[in-house]
Structures are given as C-alpha cells and as structure tokens.
C-alpha cells in the first residue's frame, strides 16, 4: 500500500472514530433523557453549541486554560439543568402523551437560544476555534494526528465507558433502568421516580455539554453545528432505539464513520440526506429502533 492511500485510510479512520465518539456521547445524553422522562430534547443541538461557545468565550475572551474552561462549562450545566427542571420540565411529569409537549417546548427553547446566539456570537465571528489543550503531533506511521484531537477522542471514549459502567453496575444506573422499563413497578420497589427523572435530566445534559466541549476542543465550529447535531443525535436515537444506550453507542460510531467516508466523495449535505433517509425508514418500519430492549 502506498503512503498516500495509507494516509487517506488513517485519516478517514481517525475522523470517523472522533466524530463517532462525539455523536455517541450526545446521542447517549439525549437517549437517557428520552428513555426516562420521555422527553425528546430537540434543544440538544443548542445545548451542545452553548457548551462549545462558552468554552470559546472562557478561553479566548477571558484567557482561562482550556482544560479548566472545559471542566467549568460541564459543571455549569448542572445548575442550569436544575433550573430548567424546576421551572419547565417538572410540570409535565404526569401528563399523558407528554413527549409531544416536551418536543414543542424544546423546539421553543431551540428558537430562543438560536435567536440569542445569532444576536451575540453571530455578530462577533463566523468561525470559532479554541487554543489546544495539549500541543504537539503524534505520527501514526506516515500519518500525523494532533495530540489535542487524540486527547479529546480518548477522553470522549473514557466518558462513554464510564457512562456505560454507571448505567450497568451502579445502584443509580439500575434504578434508572428500572424506571425506563416500568415506572410504577419501580416506584413500588422504593425507587424515587421523580428523583431519578431529575438525575437523568441533569446527567443527560451534562453528557451533551461534555460532547460540545470536546468537539470544540478538537475542531473549529460555526453556529450551524447546532442544527446538524440536533438532527444527527435524533437520528441516532431513533435508529438505535429510543432509550437504548447501547443503540446510541453503536449507531453513533456507525454514523461517525459514515460521515467520514461520505465526506471523501461528496458534500456533508449528502451525509445529512442519508441520516434523514435512514431515520425515516426506521420510523416507518421499526419505530422501536434496532436495539430496542
């Protein structure tokens, strides 16, 4: 194999893996919230962008170290989620067919945040880039990869593994899965259902924020990433099966590689068309998704 093909191969592989872990992370955050509260968070893309933009502000405008800024922003998602939960989300916990109310509600939040971003950040710049957390370049054979991107990829992978372990083995994770499956039975067994709802809202958003922060560390971005991410995360959730963390993980990685491969020959619009098409097919013929429990 010549060096040129090897470089293309390795580049596709790393891009695919990088996008894949980010997609998985966001989709896991969205699916945790949908699986427990039954809330399709259409604003996930705006939350993702909010995290990216905050890290950008903290590093570029306030001169914080990017690693510190990243932790600060992920931490900031917690009080933000509590506030949203107490003011808006909690009202609908007992409403039948609440998923459509939540969907419209989060579309409203999307519109507000998109409006605010275009007034504020949209005026400042078109492209946002964050100074690297780690400097230098690693060579994989003939292919150079920025240490910064490699670090973001490893952190995202570690976060996914930790989440998976949390949901599978920890007491909270077991309670969460019990509420996923049967809210009443879980309540009878002494699970604090509302507490679990609140926890999963906070956890899910923190994961989406982490996705945004890591994406901002690895790539430069613009305001349109919110809309693309929202659609991608929803497509992954629907195809993987709403509420299925494993589904979000697997399909997220698949989507990452799809995007990396499609981008070699065609525009990202074609990748978007293919996600939307796949999502429509699954919605129509297997709405419970490929990894339904």
């Amino acid at each position: 194999m010549s060096d040129a093909t090897l470089i293309i191969l390795l580049s596709t592989l790393t891009t695919g893996l990088m996008l894949g872990v980010i997609f998985s992370l966001v989709a896991v955050g969205v699916t945790i919230i949908y699986g427990s509260i039954w809330m399709p968070n259409a604003a996930n893309g705006q939350f993702f962008l909010l995290a990216s933009l905050f890290v950008w502000s903290a590093t570029v405008s306030f001169g914080l170290h990017p690693a510190f800024a990243a932790l600060l922003v992920i931490g900031a998602s917690v009080p933000l989620s509590y506030l949203l939960e107490a003011t808006l989300v909690r009202r609908f916990y007992d409403v039948p067919n609440r998923n459509i109310s939540y969907f419209v509600l989060t579309l409203g939040i999307t519109q507000i945040l998109a409006g605010i971003f275009s007034i504020t950040y949209g005026v400042w710049s078109d492209q946002f880039q964050i100074p690297p957390i780690v400097a230098g370049v690693t060579m994989i054979g003939p292919f150079p990869i920025a240490n910064n991107r490699l670090a973001a990829m490893l952190i995202a992978g570690a976060l996914l593994a930790a989440l998976f372990a949390l949901l599978r083995y920890h007491k909270y994770g077991r309670a969460l899965r019990a509420v996923f499956q049967n809210r009443d039975a879980a309540a009878l067994r002494g699970v604090d259902v509302r507490g679990i709802y609140r926890m999963s809202f906070v956890l899910g958003n923190a994961v989406v924020f982490a996705g945004g922060v890591l994406f901002a560390c690895a790539y430069s971005f613009d305001l349109t990433v919110a809309w693309t991410m929202a659609i991608t995360a929803f497509a992954i959730m629907i195809i993987g099966g709403p509420g299925s963390v494993l589904g979000a993980l697997v399909i997220g990685i698949v989507f990452g590689f799809t995007q990396a491969i499609v981008s070699i020959f065609a525009s990202p619009t074609v990748a978007a068309f293919s996600y939307l098409g796949a999502m429509l097919v699954i919605l129509l013929f297997k709405p419970s998704g490929l990894f339904a429990r």
Partner: peptide, 17 residues
C-alpha cells in the same frame, strides 16, 4: 428583528405551559 426568534420561542413555551 433580531429578537423575533426569541419572542416566538417564548410564546411557544408560554402556550405549552
């Protein structure tokens, strides 16, 4: 006109809630 989206978003939330 910049705040149009924000106004509509607030109205959507207001109607739902």
């Amino acid at each position: 006109y910049m705040i149009k989206d924000v106004v509509y978003g607030l109205l959507i939330i207001g109607v739902i809630v």
